[in-house]
Design a protein around this nucleic acid. Structure first.
Length: 637
RNA sequence: GCCGUUGUAGCUCAGGGGUAGAGCAACUGAUUCGUAAUCAGUAGGUCGGAGGUUCGAAUCCUCUCAACGGCACCA
């Protein structure tokens, strides 16, 4: 007897083990047709899976939340089958579902072209029409290795032979094609449907290691129906419209050019945004007890040798030579800050010492890594190092997490992903010190109320770190803030303080940043706001636009009043229709338009039009200026 | 750095061996018109850069630079 509990609470009894398909058929013919898989006690399995004990079972159909992963994974298999039919000799390697679709990595000597994608897609549709049945088989390990070798699948053969001995070798066969896979899968290729699209070609290393052969990856997306596919493609278009590189150009914020790859030319408007951000965070840091310093751009190689950067970070550093010395452009501010700390004698009473710098750092990033403002070679960090005693770590870390959340909230980032990166295999410092460091950091992140995921072994060689990750408009994640504990640099650069006991002690350093880099954060904000900045950040806040030249004199008065209130305003006296002016300034994403004509001039009023708004508000000039200047205040003010 | 793709006017793009084209933007003139495009005209490019093939190269070949999409790396 098998008792199966359905999601609606109904209980079904069977006198012998029953497959998912049988169960669906027993419930109803419609469901039997729609069934893609079964979820047994919370685990999704093939429809053919035999349930031989009492269980809670759901039938997974296209509309089920778990259907998407099945479709994605199956689409990868169908694509691989199509590719091998069309391009014999191509080896299959690995092809998982992703957050928005799927990919499959192939090994083939000739490069796939964008035209090939169309052919592959067409063949995939044929395979769906063939409705090949998909079945799971358990193979003997040696048999599997032999089979893949004989069929020229070197990568698969390697993979199989490395599967742990206690695991079964599970093979999925669809039609005449087969692949090593843990599943689960759809019952047949016809169930995949045709709401898929191959998106792009890319290179990828076998097992993610640059030392391994490079494979060709084909990305695709798949959805339960055409409508959702169209919706997804539309979303991508919308995301593209708010790409910071595009908005940066359209709004005249910044540009890049070949001669300075990876470095930003900030235009007046973009630099206004930059200055607002810098001013904001400076205020926040000052209030949190930080002092601000400035340290040299070029420092002799001997200091970088002492700090360990010459050894660990050399390939990312730009160097310069003069006379017989080698200097390096600083990639980080920390060694400079230790030099300031070392001036004179520091008492435990001076700790914690929070030393901030808007340091312009240069890092020679790989050319392929450069990406608009998000990844540059010259960046300015909102950097600071907190020198403290070990006993102060936790309080400082908690205070930092609070400050960081306060800042992120000011920009509307309510969801922050936190990664906790713990001790790496290669590290400095004793295990006891690491135990303490990790424990204090964990306590801090928990005390700050931040959910986090552990990122095992990804900490810096000198200490564990927290990474604070924001997500951009196109779904890419960017690390912004960071908090790192460092027991090594104070030692290497011989920083010390005099303790209560009158003896010398090593301080601990906390490396921390909230924006990360001003460049990246600006880029994220441009995408986050889609260029429609809140008033305090908008490079140009108000345009005063006249209806006819009769209002020119009054418009100048309005502009003067805005200037006096410290608002960033421009005057538009051009001989153009007001509709033209409204359109132009709307496209330029100016937050506030003050329209003045004869009526306003006579009544000393303004017609306030908000970006994107349909309504106008008629206010007395003084009232309008007052309201706008209140609204334009920085959240840190 | 690796793989693939792309570089033509400020922007979006067409042209594909016989020495460059459109739309928008810009500029000039006219229009004084109350909330997302007034009309007319003018100007603008050594076709990313360097070599080569050719009587002739934006177009074909080689190298190189940059950008884009990934991979790897990272704020």
């Amino acid at each position: 007897m098998v008792a199966i509990t359905l999601p609606d609470g109904n209980l079904r009894h069977f006198d012998r083990p029953v497959s998912g398909a049988d169960l669906a058929a027993a419930i109803g013919p419609g469901l039997a047709k729609a069934a893609l898989a079964v979820k047994v006690d919370g685990v999704v399995k093939d429809l053919a899976t035999v349930i031989d004990r009492n269980a809670h079972v759901e039938i997974v159909t296209r509309s089920h939340p778990d259907a998407l992963d099945l479709l994605r994974h199956d689409a990868a298999h169908v694509m691989a089958e199509a590719v091998q039919e069309l391009y014999p000799g191509t080896q299959i390697t690995f092809g998982p579902a992703t957050e928005t679709g799927f990919y499959y990595d192939f090994a083939r000597n000739e490069a796939f072209t964008p035209d090939d994608l169309e052919k592959i897609e067409a063949r995939m549709r044929e395979i769906v029409d063939r409705d090949e049945s998909i079945a799971r088989e358990i193979w003997d390990r040696d048999q599997a290795v032999r089979w893949f070798r004989e069929h020229g699948e070197q990568f698969k053969a390697e993979w199989v032979s490395e599967i742990p001995a206690e695991e079964q070798i599970s093979i999925y066969r669809q039609g005449e094609w087969l692949d090593l896979c843990t599943g689960p899968h759809l019952p047949s290729t016809g169930k995949l449907g045709k709401a898929f699209k191959l998106m792009k070609l890319a290179g990828a290393y076998w097992r993610g290691d640059p030392k391994n052969p490079q494979l060709q990856r084909i990305y695709g997306t798949v959805w339960p129906d055409d409508k959702q596919l169209a919706q997804y493609l539309h979303q991508l278009e919308e995301a593209e419209k708010r790409d910071h590189r595009r908005l940066g150009r359209e709004m005249g914020l910044f540009h890049f050019q070949e001669e300075a790859a990876g470095s930003v030319f900030w235009h007046p408007k973009g630099h206004t945004l930059y200055r607002m951000l810098e001013g904001y965070i400076r205020t926040r840091l000052g209030r949190a007890g930080y002092v601000e310093v400035k340290t040299p751009q070029l420092i002799d190689r001997s200091l970088w040798e002492a700090s360990g950067h010459w050894d660990k970070f050399r390939e990312n550093m730009f160097t310069a030579e003069t006379e017989d010395r080698v200097l390096a452009l600083k990639p980080m501010n920390c060694p400079g800050h230790v030099q300031i700390f070392r001036q004179g004698i520091t008492s435990y009473r001076d700790l914690p010492l929070r030393m901030a710098e808007f340091g312009s750092c240069h890092r020679n990033e790989a050319s392929g890594a450069l990406h608009g403002l998000m990844r540059v070679r010259q960046m300015t960090q909102d950097d600071a190092h907190i020198f403290c005693m070990e006993s102060q770590i936790e309080a400082e870390a908690v205070a930092f997490c609070d400050l960081l959340q306060l800042v992120y909230r000011d920009f509307g980032f309510d969801e922050v992903h936190v990664r906790f990166s713990d001790r790496p295999a290669v590290r400095a410092g004793s295990d006891a010190v690491w135990d303490r460091a990790e424990a204090s950091l964990r306590t801090a992140v928990e005390a700050a109320g931040l959910p986090y995921v552990v990122n095992p072994g990804e900490g810096a060689f000198y200490g564990p770190k927290l990474e604070f990750v924001l997500r951009d408009a196109i779904g890419r994640e960017w690390q912004c803030g960071t908090l790192q504990l460092d027991f090594v640099l104070p030692e290497r650069l011989d920083a010390s303080y005099i303790g209560e006991d009158g003896a010398k002690h090593r301080p601990v350093m906390l490396h921390r940043a909230i924006f990360g880099s001003l460049e990246r954060f600006a880029g994220i904000l441009i995408e986050h706001y889609a260029g429609k900045f809140p008033l305090w950040l908008a490079p140009l806040q108000v345009v005063v636009a006249t209806i006819t030249s009769d209002a020119d004199d009054y418009a100048a008065e309005v502009k003067a009043a805005l200037d006096a209130a410290g608002l960033r305003a421009e005057l538009d006296l051009r001989n153009e229709k007001i509709t033209y002016k409204v359109r132009e300034h709307s496209l330029a994403k100016v937050p506030v338009l003050l329209v003045v004509g004869k009526r306003e001039a006579e009544g000393q009023t303004v017609a306030v039009r908000r970006l994107g708004g349909k309504e106008q508000e008629f206010l007395a000039l003084g009232e309008a200026v007052h309201r706008l200047s209140v609204e334009a205040a920085s959240p840190a003010a």
